[in-house]
């Protein structure tokens, strides 16, 4: 956030027309990091803090509990329930890779490549969500089953909501891509959406490690 003044290239310059200015204000500035990408980075910073709040609650409750997972419900032992989530994790990680492949494609100006990669990414995202929804139905506890249930469903549920938002975002990008709106020089929205997707992926890796592997 501590940007060096010299790196920041000003928008307003001699002889720029109003259209260009408005355009600049909304979409792009020459040089340096673009407005949408910077906006997305800041937004992700706020999302990090949002999850930090949830994680802090989780650790606090966990450290206060006499035993973790709490006794009384064998289903709480998620280490024995790791297979499907592991597959889902693999899918999400793969989707991050395909997403990045799409970015590299459009940076080269390869629109087809972007489309292909994003379709795969979106499909993986949807599979992840469906898999998680299915997984929920197989778990023997609910959100109202004590602190374990509340923290588990809140963390994974809000992560799922973010995956959903990510899928929507990628969908919009795909739609605009099909309309031919992106090029090698002009594809900030793609970069921004992919940053978000990577972020969602990273959160899941933390969650997976924490909830399923460390138990």
């Amino acid at each position: 956030m501590t940007a060096n003044a010299d790196v920041l290239v000003p928008v307003v310059d001699r002889g720029e027309s109003l259209e260009e200015l408005v355009h600049a204000a909304e979409e792009h500035t020459r040089g340096g990091i673009s407005n949408p990408v910077l906006g997305m980075i800041l937004f992700i910073a706020s999302e990090v803090m949002f999850f930090a709040g949830l994680f802090a609650a989780y650790f606090n409750i966990r450290s206060n509990a006499p035993v973790w997972p709490p006794l009384g419900n064998v289903e709480f032992n998620l280490r024995g329930h790791v297979l499907l989530p592991a597959i889902l994790t693999l899918m999400l990680v793969t989707s991050s890779v395909t997403c990045q492949i799409g970015i590299w494609a459009i940076r080269r100006g390869d629109r087809k490549g972007l489309m292909r990669a994003f379709v795969v990414t979106i499909v993986l995202g949807i599979l992840f969500l469906s898999g998680q929804a299915y997984d929920y139905t197989t778990l023997g506890f609910g959100i109202n089953d004590g602190p374990f249930g509340s923290t588990f469903y809140t963390l994974t549920g809000f992560h799922g909501a973010h995956v959903f938002a990510g899928v929507l975002m990628l969908g919009v990008v795909l739609y605009r891509g099909m309309a031919g709106q992106f090029s090698a020089r002009h594809h900030d929205a793609v970069e921004a959406a992919s940053l978000y997707w990577h972020f969602v992926d990273v959160v899941w890796i933390c969650l997976f490690t924490l909830l399923y592997i460390l138990g």
Binding site: A45, S46, E47, M49, F51, A52, G53
Partner: peptide, 8 residues
């Protein structure tokens, strides 16, 4: 950095 924590 602060408001999202309140949201959570």
């Amino acid at each position: 950095l602060g408001t999202p924590v309140l949201t959570s």
